[in-house]
């Protein structure tokens, strides 16, 4: 069974970390990541940029609505995610719109990825 581990924290707190603190946390996580990778257990890992860099596509209406900021509703739940490699936000929004046509309702939050490790675990 593959599991996704979703990381939550208060952004106000993490953005108040000094660079040294951030580096120290990342180094500790990096050590665990390397071990998991050696064990062949690790899939893709991403550190997302802050929610201030996010755009949300509401696909519960036609045409879908593009709004600045993260997805903020609590009545909907996270069901999955895609990682797409695009030239910029416009292209990413177009991909999301296409996916939204196939599966209307709800929303997609489009958040740039800051750090990405592809991982090796595959089946």
């Amino acid at each position: 069974m593959q599991y996704a581990i979703l990381c939550y924290h208060d952004e106000k707190v993490t953005s108040a970390w000094s660079k040294e603190h951030d580096d120290a946390v990342m180094a500790k996580l990096g050590a665990i990541r390397e071990r998991l990778e050696r064990q062949g257990k690790l899939g893709p890992v991403a550190r997302l940029l802050p929610t201030t860099a996010a755009t949300t596509l509401r696909k519960d209406r036609e045409p879908p609505l593009v709004i600045d900021g993260p997805f903020a509703e609590t009545k909907e739940q996270l069901l999955g995610f895609y990682i797409v490699d695009c030239t910029g936000l416009d292209e990413a929004i177009n991909v999301a719109k296409e996916l939204g046509q196939a599966n209307p309702g709800g929303a997609y939050e489009i958040r740039p990825v800051g750090v990405f490790f592809p991982g090796k675990a595959a089946r």
Partner: peptide, 16 residues
């Protein structure tokens, strides 16, 4: 690099 990525993402958003 990460600051650049964030800055580029933000200006990309603003331009729209």
């Amino acid at each position: 690099g990460r600051l650049i990525a964030e800055g580029l993402a933000l200006i990309d958003k603003a331009v729209r």
